[in-house]
Design a protein around this nucleic acid. Structure first.
Lengths: 128, 128
DNA sequence: TTGCTGTTTGACTTTTACGTAAAGTGCGTG
DNA sequence: CACGCACTTTACGTAAAAGTCAAACAGCAA
């Protein structure tokens, strides 16, 4: 496990630009440490980036992703906050379950579409 | 099964604006027929809107959704086109499978986060 | 010292997906 | 007829999420 990653190492690994990583820092999603002015990304920052990009692929906005990564952190100490957090987590999970339904339906329709194409090819006498 | 829906009926049903439906028409996603200048939405248009919104929830862009709804249509008649279409469908499916992995991972992490909160509540002597 | 590479901040630009305002059409009702 | 209502087009505006570019600095090799 490496101690630190440079900004370009991460851009290469994840296929994103330096601008994007700085943008995520401005948005408070990541907090790389500094040596002088230069950013040093720890493994935890790298893991956060991975989680951020996962959220992006699922169509979450930056502020939604910000909420989600808050949830991954240490649970708060106060009872009210904890209950609030649990409610928020449940909401996100419901959101994700909706996405899962959408996803399965879309996959099923694509399966169907592909079958139709394959059948059409067979009709045309093409050996698949 | 209704013959036609008005634009506002659909906006109410789906919780979107008229602007959005006209935008989708401009983008070539739907093609409601006209009586005079007024749009009439058929059941098939309504179904398309449903599919479009599903794509949106999954984080697809308008042009990606355009590609997807092309795939739902009748398969093309020409062999080359058919093979191309099948390749495209397979790409989208791979895309969706990636999303599914992302989704399951995110759900798992949220499960874990919620458990941590519940445990923390228990430590504080709160009866859940 | 010069030059290269990587990095910084800051400002401006772009794309997407609509929102919103203006001005007008078509139709059924009182 | 006048009104209201749903609908139309055209045009400009905007927020989010970066992309792009410039100017400057730091470290290191030749």
């Amino acid at each position: 496990m490496r101690e630190y990653y440079s900004i370009t190492e991460l851009t290469r690994e994840f296929g994103i630009s330096t601008r994007t990583l700085r943008f995520y820092e401005d948005e408070g999603l990541i907090h790389p440490v500094r040596r002088g002015r230069t950013r040093l990304f720890r493994p935890s920052d790298r893991h956060l980036v991975r989680q951020i990009l996962r959220g992006k692929r699922l169509g979450f906005s930056i502020s939604e992703i910000r909420e989600i990564v808050q949830m991954y952190k240490e649970p708060p100490g106060e009872v009210g906050q904890l209950k609030l957090m649990i409610r928020r987590i449940e909401e996100k999970r419901e959101d994700l379950r909706q996405k899962r339904r959408d996803l399965e339906e879309t996959l099923a329709e694509l399966d169907h579409a592909e079958e139709a194409c394959v059948e059409r090819l067979a009709e045309l006498g093409v050996n698949t």
